[in-house]
Design a protein around this nucleic acid. Sequence first.
RNA 1: GGCGGCUUGGCGGAAUUGGUAGACGCGCUCGACUCAAAAUCGAGUUCCAACGAGUGUGGGUUCGAGUCCCACAGCCGCUACCA
Length: 871
Amino acid sequence: MSDVRKPFPFREFELQWQQRWESEKTFRTPGPGDVAFDPAKPKYYVLDMFPYPSGAGLHVGHPEGYTATDIIGRYKRMTGHNVLHPMGYDSFGLPAEQYAIKTGQHPAITTAANIENFRRQLKSLGFAYDWDREIATTDPEYVRWTQWIFLQIYNSYFCEDSNKARPVSELEAKGWTREQIDEVRLAYVADTPVWWSPDLGTVLANEEVEEWKGKGHTVERRPLRQWMLRITKYAQRLIDELDTLDWPDGIKLLQKNWIGRSEGASVQFQISNFESQIEVFTTRPDTLFGATYMVLAPEHPLVLEITTAGQKDAVEIYQKSIASKSDMDRGDLNKDKSGVFTGAFAVNPVNDVKIPIWIADYVMMGYGTGAIMAVPAHDERDFEFATKFGLEIKEVVAAVCDRRTNPGETSDNRSAAEIAGGNHRPPLQSATCDPGIAINSGFLDGLPTAEAKAKMIHWLESNHLGKRRIQYKLRDWLFSRQRYWGEPFPVVWKDGQHHAISENELPLLAPPLDDYKPSGSPEPILTKATGWVNLPDGSVRETNTMPQWAGSCWYYLRYCDPSNTNRFISHEAEAYWTSDKPGMVDLYVGGTEHAVLHLLYSRFWHKVLYDLGHVTTPEPFQRLVNQGLILGEDGQKMSKSRGNVVNPDDVVREYGADALRLYEMFMGPLEQVKPWQMKGVEGVSRFLARVWRVALEEQQDGSFRISPKIQDIPCTDKELLRVVHETIKKVGEDIDKLSFNTAISQMMICTNAFTQTEIVPLREFTQFLTVLNPFAPHLAEEINARIGGKGMLSEQTWPAYDPAALVRSEIEFIIQVNGKLRDRLMLSKDAGETAAQSAALASAKVKEHTDGKTIRKIVFVPGKLLNIVAN
RNA sequence: GGCGGCUUGGCGGAAUUGGUAGACGCGCUCGACUCAAAAUCGAGUUCCAACGAGUGUGGGUUCGAGUCCCACAGCCGCUACCA
């Protein structure tokens, strides 16, 4: 961009160092089986969320997390660890295919080009990756093992007794039929209503629907035959084992809420004049006496059967209106309750009261049983519905206001005795009433909610009318897509049954196709490749493909042993790179956007592999850190439309890779959301130039020579020595804490000290460069080489600080009167209370504020402060 | 509506177990160098003329609160009829 001469020649040396690191394989990580492998070295596995190689290239959010992990990786290497810090590409997926369609090029071509661009950008930032371990999820060898893992899942079932996945071969041995086994596989085919997007030409997982709708695509509900993964079997383990992980509480909570466990009961309601029963799930079985009507989801299979002739037209019209509205934003529909009476009645099992059965879209087919018992007095939604349609509202729980402050009083100021005496009025609005006391509820009357629930469940179970039940929001994972750019399923169909293909046929790659545009029909694209689909023995290939998540579910495993052709990861590599903790990866850094998708799917796959004995830890990621979003200079989210996007390439060109790395780390705490400021980049760039000038002087001809201030003599400046050792100490501690911004500020202080001193001792300055190296490796290496340093800093050990250099003989004590700062006194660091006290009382400034007052108390904090309390 | 996070100068942000509020950087002001400018180096910079006041607001605990407790407000993110 600008031709202005740079204060330090980063353009000359950054590329040179990058090339040297690459050609010398400085950051190659030896693993088991390697000649250079030393099993005695402690391992450290630090992982980045690998990028999806879009056409837009890296954005500044990528280098944020990547620089953080790079600093940690380089630091751990310097402290004697065998560090695994790899990089790869999540290169399958819908966006790649959309991009290919847009540009008219085959996704294989655009993906290769995008990867190449990402690789160039990553390399231009000097990250210490072991490039020999680079992987892309689209690599045929990678696809092979993705498909292999799918087959492990396909060939497993969830054994309820051992609470883990087991091979289906065990069931075969027990004489189960093929049909019975297909019913329990962890990968199964089901006809379910799914989210179908005509313009994307594929179905989407529940989790993905919002994202694509947000991008302007249409999505509608359709029943289709799809592959599902039985993740719901792992719901409880996915909740429980979160406790073993060092993850931010917010992310754990997000996953817990997503899995959405609730405890309650299922209850059977007999339909009047019908054989059928309707089962409902409720978290409030204690309110059963207050169930005054029932609601079925409009799609509920019993609706047509029970609807009376008189209501048939109304019900059908309503069902159609719901179906046609299905691709509208539900939020708009939610403002008002709607529904239709079926004409049928159910019998409330506790009191034999006949209650009307309605259908309404506020009850969804996908959760619970698709039917509810409505208790309008104690559920907001039911209350709203009952109020609108004039249905009976019966209060069955007396809310206890606040037992600690007003024992015995209820929320509407009536005593429990009044309510028990029947002196109650209908509630003006619904109340959740938990905890509360059961009223108007027969055998439950007078019981607090928790006990009433237990008693009702017991009653239901002994009368065979229902049972205790735990319900999860989590649904099975819709695993198939109709797109071209994904892993084909390693499955063929014959006589209506699916069969796994043999392992030695893997990888099964998609055939070349010229036209992979969405056709508007839900037929998978691969159906067009008839030569590929139809096999000589009359069987046909499965034409669905896997979602993008498949590749990202296990990539961290492949990095450990990326070129293994016999297994997805060798037992040796897995054993070495795993830890004694539940999670395999020591540190995983990435954005929050994957809190419930990738991070949940990965945990699920890992647990299946663990159950089947393929890996030795139950969790993939021990410690997780989320980097905060980087906003534009205007404080808004970066976006093309706002025009506030910062391109890392531009920053590297203008200020250098070290400046970009350092700035992103200096902006603020890693996990915090923070706005970009180009002036801040200039600031750190200026800092780097100051470091440069400590060592190197520019000459008339523009070349640099070693500054005469640099001298290879012992450091006699105690103050300088203290700053250097404080810096060594603080930077190390701050890296451990991931507090990079404060580490950098300490290095700035140290540089200022070097700038202001007359003699810069070579030894101390080199120690400083070693500490700076993980942050600004190009600059540190270059200066070190120019001042005659031997070898590469990247291969040095981290310097130890000298505690003796840190001690100060005198410390500034703070003297307060009534908690207010009145004087500062230089005293010996071990000054006792008596010495400090007499010095303080002698201070004129203190006297000003204590004159005429009586000293009541003196608080002394050794080495810090003295507070005189006087009035 | 629910859940989570955040709130400190003109700006980004520092502040061990409660113990000097504003480290470090940006911006700004002044000075040096220069014919001049840029760059660089040096000094200063929370507000107020001053007394004093001051970490979103109001209370509380404490010798002492940005930090702990209670109540409230505002911004941001996620989620949304989950029975």
